[in-house]
Design a protein around this nucleic acid. Sequence first.
DNA 1: TAGATATTTAGAAATATATCTAAATATCTT
DNA 2: AAGATATTTAGATATATTTCTAAATATCTA
Lengths: 91, 91
Amino acid sequence: MKNSVFKALADPSRRQILKLLKNSDKNVGEILENFDMAGASLNHHLTILKNADLVTSEKRGQYVIYSLNTTVFQEILEWIFEIKGGTKNEI
Amino acid sequence: MKNSVFKALADPSRRQILKLLKNSDKNVGEILENFDMAGASLNHHLTILKNADLVTSEKRGQYVIYSLNTTVFQEILEWIFEIKGGTKNEI
DNA sequence: TAGATATTTAGAAATATATCTAAATATCTT
DNA sequence: AAGATATTTAGATATATTTCTAAATATCTA
């Protein structure tokens, strides 16, 4: 499990971004509406999430759409089971 | 889910400590053998893990024994499911 | 009780992180 | 093409984190 994933999850704003993207993909402006933060600051968080593969982004015209990448969460689950002991069947 | 938990997991040394404690409880010296780090530094990491309720500690004579506290991992799992969607039955 | 061992606390230094403003780049619309 | 809107980059600053050494505290053993 990559360190960048845990580092990315260690910030409340970034976790909230993930929660926002759970429901629907959003462009940067739409994400920004939920925060009291400069656009450049949000961009910094998005970059960190992207480097951790927790989100993906795609340019559509003027906008950049961010989406949740759920495959990494599977890896996090596996890391937890490794520590916690047990398997997916025993939750 | 408390921020302190994610913060605690964001450091590789601390994640390794959790992995070490998975197999058996250990005192500080035994944990320290696995790291190239001053005792005071390790103590700092242990304090962070303790504040996040990821480990517990108990003094036994001269030694302090650290143990994994698996109950918090259950909460982490639930947070992941909240983001990822799905339930424990669908892994 | 004195010295040895185990752990924690205090304080300092280096590095990393989060945030900002200003400017750059890309795209859209008229 | 010019101006408007969306996003990113650059550079600065403040705060947080990791690590160290030295010293303090607690317990054990001879």
